[in-house]
Amino acid sequence: MATVELRFSALPEHVRTARLVAAAVARRAGVDEAALDEVRLAVGEACSRAVGLHRSNGVDMPVRVVLTEEEKKFSIEVGDEVPETPSGPGARTADEAAGHPVASGESGTEEAEDEGTMGLAVISGLVDDVEVTSGPGGGTIRMSWPTTPTVELP
């Protein structure tokens, strides 16, 4: 069972809340203090990506964040509700841009596309254990960090 589960409307202003909650639960779970910045950033990237996917596909369901304290690791799952497209997983961000021809410079579309790709680049650069999947029900980014067991006080 998840230690903490969070669902939030796909709005940019809630991504910070997800970051704060994830970092707080990760700290409690025993994730190394030095890795908390990574947790914060990776969760933020995954949530920003999910929010972007929901908004650009007109999905009004919430973004899902599942934080689970396991025996020797702390895992985070960020799920979106945007179904996989024929182009395959991970291609959805590019598909969005394909729907709107890129006008160089001014439109901001190009930047938005850069951000989508860069978000995943940041996650894969930061997190050793990461898995990006996509299916008919939506996509999921799973990440985990090792934890050091804390001595439970009686």
């Binding site: 990237e45 930047e111 951000e115 978000g119 940041v122």
Partner: peptide, 9 residues
């Protein structure tokens, strides 16, 4: 804090 959205900007 800085994320990829900021990098994009």
């Amino acid at each position: 804090f800085l994320d990829s959205t900021g990098l994009g900007v």
